[in-house]
Design a protein around this nucleic acid. Structure first.
Lengths: 235, 235
DNA sequence: AGCGTACTTGTACAATGTAAGGCTGTCAAG
DNA sequence: CTTGACAGCCTTACATTGTACAAGTACGCT
């Protein structure tokens, strides 16, 4: 099976890094990160595994590329958002961009893991954060506060809050936790009441894991933004 | 090489799950997570790889166990901390426990990755969060607010803020980022000023990655705690 | 036609997790 | 003491993965 000619159009369509990355995203979208192996990716492109290595140094580099594609998707997604004009709307400007990022994460539920496993930045990320910087400045923050703010937001700035103990996306093994809860509730009195009180279901699919639904995400986000705004006012 | 008898004491020391987990932690401590393979672990215990499977279902189960050991270490580490007595000191009680957790994370820099990759909870985690629940209640929070608070704190509750783009612990590939920064600074005007303004070195080894030094951690932590306290007062 | 460059493939290997079944020592019951 | 059963450990083997290496193929240029 050679990939020189596309069987449909019969036109030669050489492999490119872009095509590879796009295929990688698609592969992960249906099948999860585990499905993204070099062989499977090559297969999806009608090519042998080793062919990928001409365009991509190794798998880490591939994931770096995938991460960049995802952030670029955020940038496109947010392209139409109005800029911040001053201290009055910096918070709203941040909020809408972060929500935009979150939309992209909901499209690619594996993306948080890829992003968190990257060790180096890339152009898209820098651009993305540069946008935040503009907003912080428009809001009248010092560089120092802006810097703290970015770190404080952490992964939330990219639209997700990587919580621990998320049942793997796709699989339904939440049952294990339920068991444990029931078991411990007897010994840990508060937990019983607690579990009763907070029982909340999640009808829509706005979840990125255990309890990380839209509501929780926004709660924490606003907590941060409000806190930052207060610090900003204090100078 | 059979493991029946310990060469030193010449006493038979059977494998146990505890010994395996302890060895796993030690292995990861020097060598990182990559060094924690079933074969290497078996080697460290003077045993064959497959012997581990009698005590541990598979590698996922091993990591589950390791995660639990780490949280148990936090619990021990925090055992002596005074309880919260009321609304006046709930924040301090939280703060000291989270700092305690952070100490443990600094001892096991690989632990954040293990914890974040777990999909199910365990007894130790439940105990740990139960302690928080007691504090929240002592502080006069509603269960609902307590619940939000836990999620908002997220991984910070366990002593780390898993930021993106952390140079891998051990390796020094921060250079890549520096390059990128320099490259983009020309096009992104704000960044130049920004980088100048925030340049901060990190003499002590209190870091868990890129900029996640003690200062940043505490900044975000206090932002959250202060915000929560405000919500608490508002009822 | 021939040649060099850009791209692709075939083959092969090492590292890893783990399935399946065999070996061995210990200990209780006969 | 013998016998059997079982807990604990090992041997062998295999599938999956990333990727080194070298040889192959197509295509533009002279």
């Amino acid at each position: 099976m050679t990939a020189e000619t596309d069987p449909e159009t019969n036109i030669r369509r050489p492999l490119t890094k872009q095509r590879i990355l796009a295929a990688a995203v698609a592969l992960a979208d249906d099948g999860g990160l585990d499905a993204l192996t070099m062989r499977a990716l090559a297969d999806a492109l009608g090519v042998e595994a080793m062919s990928l290595y001409y365009h991509v140094a190794n798998k880490e580099a591939l994931l770096d590329g995938v991460a960049e594609v995802v952030v670029e998707e955020i940038l496109e997604n947010n392209a139409d958002l109005p800029p911040a004009t001053g201290p009055g709307d910096w918070k709203q400007a941040m909020r809408s961009r972060i929500q935009g990022a979150r939309q992209v994460m909901l499209r690619h539920k594996w993306a948080p893991w890829v992003l968190e496993s990257r060790t180096t930045m890339n152009g898209a990320v820098l651009l993305y954060f540069h946008g935040f910087l503009e907003i912080f400045r428009a809001g009248g923050m010092s560089y120092d506060l802006a810097h703290h703010a970015m770190h404080a937001l952490g992964s939330r700035a990219l639209g997700f809050s990587q919580e621990m103990f998320n049942p793997a996306p796709g699989t339904e093994d939440e049952g294990d936790d339920e068991e444990l809860f029931a078991e411990m509730a007897a010994e840990l009195p508060l937990f019983f009441e607690f579990m009763e009180a907070i029982a909340h279901d999640d009808p829509d699919d706005q979840t990125l894991g255990w309890c990380d639904d839209q509501t929780e995400f926004e709660f924490a986000l606003d907590l941060m933004l409000d806190g930052l705004d207060r610090l900003r006012q204090e100078g």
